[in-house]
Simulated scan of single mutants.
Amino acid sequence: MVDLPRKLLAEALGTAVLLAIVIGSGIMAERLAGGNVAIALLANTLATVGGLYILIEVFGPVSGAHFNPAVSGVMALRGELPGAMLLPYIAAQLIGAVLGAWLAHAMFDLPILQWSTRARAGTGLWIAEAVATAGLLLVILRAPAGRAAPMVAAYIGAAYWFTASTSFANPAAAFGRMFSDSFAGISPDSVGGFMAAQIAGALIGMGVHQALHPPTRRHLNVIEASGEAEPN
């Protein structure tokens, strides 16, 4: 069995690389796109999709490749992550997110320590984050065995474009982006609203999964015993 330190290392390292990909590709895209925001967002999307797929495949067997406090929280609620491991997982993810932002800055010769000035607030953006996170959790929970990596990566790529917020869908990502005044950044004043929407979305996604989940044999027996089953 993989021990806790190795799991936490995988979560911290995976989240760090994910944030370096998101922020670094945003910096590169903005430099090369010549002011065309659509092209910059497309480049940012493609890099994130490819990187996320690889990271899930690489770190999934070690820690589950959550890289996301909302995912870890739902897994703890479902009993798939021991409750005692939840806070260490979240701490590793948040630390990794900050280190990933700093790594992106170092690679592009930017000041390491930054605060984002990019405001992202408003009802539409918060709804978008709730939708993006709900969809992410639904994909994770309902993905067939061995299919989670491509399905999650594809969903995030789509959500970059169909949500008004460009789909952060991850409290750790929002936290890490706060430390980067770049294309992918988010101002500290905006982070709280994003995180609240993401947590709400994660719970909604879990609820939808439960509503879609077929009843167990035990549940069917209870229904039949109560006389609620339809006659043949």
Rank of each mutant, 00 (worst) to 15 (best):
V2R: 13
D3H: 15
P5I: 13
K7C: 14
L8Y: 09
L9V: 15
L9I: 14
L13F: 15
G14E: 04
G14Y: 07
T15D: 07
A16I: 13
A16S: 15
L18E: 09
L18Q: 09
L19M: 15
L19E: 10
L19G: 08
A20C: 15
I23Y: 10
I23A: 10
G24A: 13
S25G: 12
G26T: 08
G26E: 11
I27D: 11
M28V: 14
A29I: 09
E30C: 04
E30G: 05
A33M: 06
A33I: 10
G34K: 11
G35P: 10
G35E: 14
N36P: 09
I39T: 10
I39Y: 00
A43I: 06
L46T: 05
A47E: 06
G50Y: 06
G50L: 06
G50S: 10
G50F: 03
Y53N: 09
Y53E: 10
I56L: 07
I56Y: 01
I56F: 03
I56D: 06
E57Y: 04
V58S: 02
S63T: 01
A65S: 10
A65M: 04
F67S: 01
S72M: 01
G73K: 00
A76G: 00
L77P: 00
G79H: 01
A84Y: 08
M85E: 15
M85F: 11
L86F: 04
L94W: 00
A97N: 01
L99F: 03
L103C: 12
L103F: 09
A104P: 01
H105G: 07
